[in-house]
Design a protein around this nucleic acid. Structure first.
Lengths: 272, 272
DNA sequence: CAAATAGTGTCTCTAAGACAATATCAC
DNA sequence: GTGATATTGTCTTAGAGACACTATTTG
């Protein structure tokens, strides 16, 4: 096919106008709040990694980590690289959330973003050791639909409270699209990206397949249950939960001792 | 915030190297093959819309409809526009499949594609009236996993037979990624896009929510069942299917008469 | 022993699969 | 009537929710 070679040598990609392409990453973690009262187990919270923007636009507002795609990398590689550069946290798992392309979503111009959900284990966060004065912080997440069908996304870190309000527009498929009513102090359209990311995460957590990424290799079934409950914002009876995940995990012969109650056996994910 | 205004007036997006962005659309239809024997109902086939490439690269090979994103349109609008321009078919529903960004996927250069699944009703195809000599044709689809875990994608239209072979690479999430072993005559990485699109479509069809988009407003339950069975490549007992979709549909008082058997009541989708 | 979590067993309810039986048309 | 699909009902089974009960640790 010499004519194909000839075509390609003539072809100049710069003849056409092009957008910029970014990735944004909604990195979630489950944090274990240490016991506030004696004899009580830990409390779990779903947390989202945000960075305070140091430059324009949206200077000093909070945003998802992410940045511009470089040549010779995939968007997944870009998402990992940017997250690590900006927060020092390296995600272990990435899941696509979708593309955001509405004209005007970025005041700098024609910029399309491909967004991802990622999952970080508490272990790896502790290793990084996040500075309180850092620009990157873990915000606790709450996301609910009120009786009028309006969604409220609240993100909280120490004395910073971001409260965004969104409406869901039905598209031809079941998959809804979020329209921002109040961005609550979040940069760009990140309130909508976060809402969609949470929806994707919850949908995925139904399969008992995603939730393992929040935990270290060996874990107790109770820890696994707390992860599930925290993501889905539901509560399950322990007996039923154990039955439901039983086919996804296998025993080890190790135990967690030293707690003020019966030791729990450690499990690991079963490689099907 | 005058400093933000100042920043934006200084900002020149052309200072950075950018990719080109395209959309590709995997448009599916269920075709009703007319009865080959007397007294027998119609046979259904899942079909995919492909176009024969008129120019380089991959000249004369078959590809998904799609094209470059224009300024001031969303990627969804681009997907609809390009599909209509290239095939004269206007999709009624679009569902995102993901972004394809592996370097080298397009010989013209740095080009990222966002792919969609779309669904076309047989009705609207008949209205368009597709020419046999046209560059756009509906290929019947078969997609199966053999015992070795290798996927075989076969697309057939008259005497054209495209047989692609793919492997599934597990990613950190459940969602697999398809690697092309043999593109079977499909342009670019479209064999992988089609495989992923079929996976997304099948996953979605489980909800009894997507399948209505394949049919006109009023339909018989048997027609609905054939759609479901064709997409999922399974067969269901009629009684059970009726029970399962009963909450998604509502009766009309119209019937389809003139067939050689008991007339079937027409149903419509229930607006929940 | 008390308090707490770990872990097991069982009842119930529901949704889905199998299958049988009846209904109504064209010819 | 015959052959076809339409439509309804019932039996069975698998899985999830509710709940009660036992086990094992620390203080």
């Amino acid at each position: 096919m010499d004519s194909e070679k000839a075509f390609l040598s003539e072809y100049n990609i710069n003849d056409y106008e092009r957008p910029s392409l970014t990735t944004d990453v909604a990195a979630f973690m489950i944090s274990t709040e240490e016991k506030q009262n004696e004899r009580k187990g830990p409390d779990n919270k779903l947390r989202l990694l945000l960075i305070k923007r140091g430059g324009h636009p949206f200077k000093d507002m909070w945003a998802l980590p992410g940045g511009f795609l470089k040549k010779d990398e995939t968007i997944e590689e870009c998402a990992l690289r940017e997250t690590f550069e900006e927060t020092n946290v390296m995600p272990t798992a990435l899941m696509p959330v979708g593309a955001f392309s509405k004209p005007g979503r970025d005041p700098r111009g024609w910029i399309i973003s491909n967004a991802f959900v990622s999952i970080i284990t508490e272990e790896s966060v502790k290793q990084v050791g996040m500075d309180d004065a850092s620009d990157a912080q873990w915000f606790s997440v709450s996301f609910d639909r009120d009786d009028d069908g309006v969604y409220h996304l609240s993100l909280e870190y120490e004395d910073v409270l971001l409260k965004a309000v969104l409406a869901e527009e039905k598209t031809s498929f079941g998959r809804g699209e979020f329209r921002i009513i109040d961005n609550g102090g979040l940069a760009f359209d990140h309130a909508a990206i976060i809402s969609r990311a949470l929806t994707v995460l919850r949908n995925e957590a139904k399969n008992y397949d995603t939730i393992f990424d929040f935990l270290p290799e060996k874990f107790t079934l109770t820890a696994l249950q707390r992860v599930q409950e925290t993501i889905m914002n539901v509560s399950v009876l322990p007996g039923n939960f154990r039955r439901m995940v039983s086919s996804y995990v296998e025993e080890t012969d190790e135990y967690v001792k030293g707690e003020r109650h019966r030791p729990a056996k450690l499990f690991r994910r079963k490689k099907q």
